[in-house]
Amino acid sequence: MTRGWLYRLPLPALLAASALAADGAAAPAADPGKAVAFYLVAAVTVGSALGCAIATNIVRMAMCLLGTLGGVALLYFLMSATFLGVIQLIVYAGGTLIVIVFGVMLTSRAYGVKLRPRPVEVLAALVVCGALLVGLVAVLLRTDWPAAPAGGAAEGTVAALGGSLLSVYLVPFELASVLLLAVMIGAAYLAQPALPTAGDGAGPEE
């Protein structure tokens, strides 16, 4: 039987939520619509993260990661960090995830081959992660966080972010660019086809 609607369901919801969440700054603090949007997006985010954990097919995992990344971007929108939300979509969903899917396609020859973990591993991981989650939530709910200054970040975030990147955070910014250069060279070196060397009979296929 067809179960197509199951997969279709979150997408219109996401569309509506993104429209709803796109300008977080305009709405007042205690807005029930915003709370509904938060719970909707949070459900999508955690749901796809769980899907990531459950899925055995690596491409399905990547698609679940897309759900999580999009959900986190919407959460950024909800927290009026619009610039970060968009950067998350460009770099993560539009760049990193495509690289990951590309990597999957380059490294799995047989279609739908599944590498399953041993049951004991799953059990141990479940126990550890469950314990960690319970502990973290217990701590988080009991901690009394310092209250926010009124309003929080609002319009003009992009200019402020740019200003602080080029003043206070100039050194990390430059370091990040050096890192990116190193990564570019390193990735190009690592991924180049093996050079034919003299007397190398047992080299990798090429």
Binding site: I87, A93, I98, V101, E155
Partner: peptide, 28 residues
């Protein structure tokens, strides 16, 4: 519909995300 402060790169991001659908279609 929404005069976003980051409208330009929002559109850019959406163009990038759409590719995943094509990639997925090819794989599936």
């Amino acid at each position: 519909a929404r005069d976003l402060e980051v409208g330009l790169i929002f559109i850019f991001a959406m163009l990038g995300v759409g590719v995943l659908g094509v990639l997925l279609a090819g794989w599936a």
